[in-house]
Design a protein around this nucleic acid. Structure first.
Lengths: 247, 247
DNA sequence: CTATTATACCGACCGACGGTCTATTCTCAA
DNA sequence: TTGAGAATAGACCGTCGGTCGGTATAATAG
């Protein structure tokens, strides 16, 4: 094999890119290191020059995810026009769609992220993201408590609950994707939308706000994402990639 | 090796017992099938006569956990003296200590169950347990809504939130065990107790109850469990088993 | 313009893993 | 008594994550 030398940082990012695709497509466990290095077109030795282990690769990937999500949300915090509730709502809305423009993109991300075999990957990302977001959330909640918008105690704890609602969504969403038929899907969408409303009200009440104050996403967002599947039929990332793989 | 034949059901239970010990001690991934069959004293062939795969073993283990937890809680439901709130509190208290008598036992279970390498195992158990407990919870909440005790809608959703608070506890507890020094531990215990109180109030508010109605566990329970470590020092299951293993 | 060192990369190799297969022994109903 | 099938044994297989000795290129010093 010819020897190709690239800028280390570029090479590292490339590795993360290919790992991201493969981990999301096949799951962390099922995607082998050989797959990663074959896709990236490098040798085992080169890989272990950049990462100490497969696990370290996963960790770096989770960190990059968290960093990107954090970057996509920074502007909300600088905006002095927003009160604590507005800031919190903006944060909740943004954090769900950072780096995702269209509903179809969101669907692809969801469909892969919430597959059962991606539990480990998802959890790592969540831990990294929580570590990054927690201070921001705590700050917002403290502000809200200080100016009387929120009526609660233990801002750190509340921030944890807010973020773990995101984690709790995992199984709910996973179930929505587990259903086979389109009829199942319709029921799943309704359940999912009702569940999101319920989470919103739960947060309202925990924060001592009137019902309807918190908005996790625009109404209809769930339906928009979930119905985007029919636009991009069975040609999901998974199918396309697994076809390319065994050849 | 001499050929030993046992009653199939006994053999199966034995396999689950040994798998439980090893999975909790070393984690699902790190505990190898060879470890399991060596501990159980049987051959590969015998193992694959009882389980289709390592994953099937995990699944069966999770099911057994859920079944046992459910059994330990059945009496609460039959008690006609309890109102919905009492029933819910009893369920929350019982489900946390089914099959666990002493604080030391609870500590050992926690210390193993919440180790990061046991995420997969923990998640499987949680999924199985949720599937088993969900109908019970829904029924209780429906009763409470019907007789005016709870003021909420979407009982299924609320039941999900209640149970996922259990799941959300994972990382909080995991952090508590991650700390090294005893000083860390003291802080972790305080955080943990405050967090439990917060979860209780969150549930109160979600269910439309006055603060202080829900009781996840008796006050001081967390401290009792966590300080039980010092009683049974480094001779944890993990240390003892890993010593016995590499010989 | 060398000589030297550090960095990026290669790929054969390793032990351990989960899983398969064939062979053997035991049980028990007909 | 026998034969079908359940229960057990263990050699074997492909693949996995990871290691290692080595090579080519880039960077630096003399």
């Amino acid at each position: 094999m010819p020897r190709i030398i690239k800028h280390p940082e570029l090479r590292r990012e490339e590795l993360l890119d290919h790992a991201q695709t493969l981990f999301l497509t096949h799951g962390y466990d099922k995607a082998s290191l050989n797959d990663v290095i074959a896709t990236a077109g490098i040798s085992k030795g080169a890989f272990y020059h950049y990462f100490a282990s497969k696990e370290a690769l996963l960790e770096a990937l989770a960190e990059r995810f968290a960093r990107q999500a954090l970057a996509g949300v920074q502007d909300v915090l600088g905006d002095p026009a927003l009160d604590p509730l507005g800031r919190l709502n903006a944060l909740l809305a943004k954090s769900r769609q950072a780096k995702v423009e269209t509903a179809a993109e969101a669907w692809t991300l969801f469909e892969t992220m919430f597959r059962p075999e991606n539990l480990v990957l998802f959890h790592r990302i969540n831990v990294a993201a929580n570590a990054a977001f927690s201070p921001l959330l705590v700050e917002i909640i403290k502000q809200g408590v200080a100016d009387g918008t929120f009526r609660t105690f233990d801002p750190e704890g509340v921030a944890d609950i807010v973020m773990q609602f995101g984690l709790a969504t995992h199984d709910v969403i996973a179930k929505a994707f587990a259903g086979g038929s389109d009829a199942d899907m319709d029921i799943a969408i309704e359940t999912l939308e009702r569940r999101v409303r319920l989470y919103e009200i739960a947060l309202d009440r925990i924060l001592g706000l009137p019902d309807g104050s918190i908005r996790i996403g625009e109404p209809g967002y769930v339906r928009a994402v979930m119905t985007a599947r029919r636009a991009s039929p069975s040609s999901s990332v998974a199918a396309a990639a697994s076809k390319a793989r065994r050849m």
